[in-house]
């Protein structure tokens, strides 16, 4: 009886719905899964051992290390500043707020290459600021890790703000007021009332910006150039391997980067779905 009812249900689903689903899934598979499969299979063609060999070369390791630590530093700064900016934008009224809010989306809209160019124009050795920092303080920005961090800060800034903002809007101001009437200080209120509610969004935003930073290319190639062992990040390393026709090196690094990106995306997806369930 149960089987029969299922068959009937399937029969009554119009063909149109089936074909739409087929189109959607084939499109996603062809556009996303197929290319991914190509890279992964090429990267793993020499087995895990081969992959390790290619990735453990000094230039590769240095590039990966550089990418990871600059991305980590950026994530730390942007998480704090992103939450702060989101809080200020949601909770307070002040002149120029609309402009500030629009400014946050600029990094999403501007091509990353142009971002890199902007930073070079601003902080390059020939410019006023860059020259000052270089000669007086001995800090290199362009072609050095600080430039990379600056570029990453710019391109990833919207992530945390834009994930935290809607959640913060949802949380009623009454909750903060309630905490205040219960005698909690502003800091305690933030720590005990707001932060727990915001945590999933903050973590999601931070992880996404970290993942995004690992793969960043356009701004970094301009700001940091392509100097192996010094300012070459993982993505730039992949480019240099492609240009020197070293497919194995390129594929190995690609697989490592993809694995990290995959993991992060699915972790974020998990956090968000758990949150949705909890709110439901």
């Amino acid at each position: 009886m149960f089987d029969a009812s299922i068959k009937k249900r399937q029969a009554s689903r119009p063909w149109g719905q089936w074909s739409l689903r087929a189109v959607a899934l084939i499109y996603l598979s062809a556009m996303l899964l197929l290319p991914l499969a190509a890279v992964v299979s090429d990267g793993l063609s020499g087995g895990i051992q081969g992959l390790w060999q290619d990735i453990s070369r000094p230039a590769a390791m240095a590039a990966l290390r550089l990418s990871l630590w600059t991305a980590a530093v950026m994530t730390g700064i942007n998480t704090v500043m992103g939450v702060l900016a989101a809080y200020v934008l949601v909770r307070y009224r002040f002149p120029g707020k609309a402009f500030l809010n629009a400014l946050i989306d600029v990094p999403f809209a501007i091509p990353t290459l142009v971002t890199g160019l902007m930073l070079v124009v601003l902080y390059g050795p020939q410019t006023a600021i860059g020259g000052f920092l270089d000669r007086r303080l001995g800090i290199d920005i362009i072609f050095a890790p600080p430039g990379i961090i600056l570029a990453l800060l710019f391109v990833s800034f919207p992530f945390v703000v834009r994930t935290v903002q809607p959640v913060l809007t949802e949380i009623d101001l009454d909750q903060e007021d309630a905490a205040a009437t219960l005698g909690a200080s502003s800091w305690t209120t933030f720590r005990r009332v707001l932060l727990p509610a915001l945590a999933p969004a903050v973590i999601s935003g931070a992880l996404l910006s970290f993942a995004r930073a690992l793969g960043e290319f356009g701004s970094i190639i301009v700001v940091a150039g392509n100097f192996p062992l010094r300012s070459q990040t993982a993505a730039v390393y992949v480019l240099s391997q492609i240009e020197s026709d070293n497919q194995r090196g390129a594929s190995a690094m690609s697989v490592v980067l993809l694995a990290m990106a995959f993991t992060l995306v699915f972790v974020v997806d998990f956090i968000q779905r758990r949150q949705e369930r909890r709110n439901a």
């Binding site: 197929l34 190509a38 995004r212 290319f217 993505a235 992949v238 492609i242 990106a261 699915f266």
Partner: peptide
């Protein structure tokens, strides 16, 4: 598939280009 959709956000553009060459 829902999670997969987000992937292009975090895949390095260099790797994206590289995929085309590999294919």
């Amino acid at each position: 598939f829902n999670a997969l959709v987000d992937l292009p956000f975090v895949v390095s553009p260099v790797i994206t280009g590289y995929m085309v060459i590999l294919l």
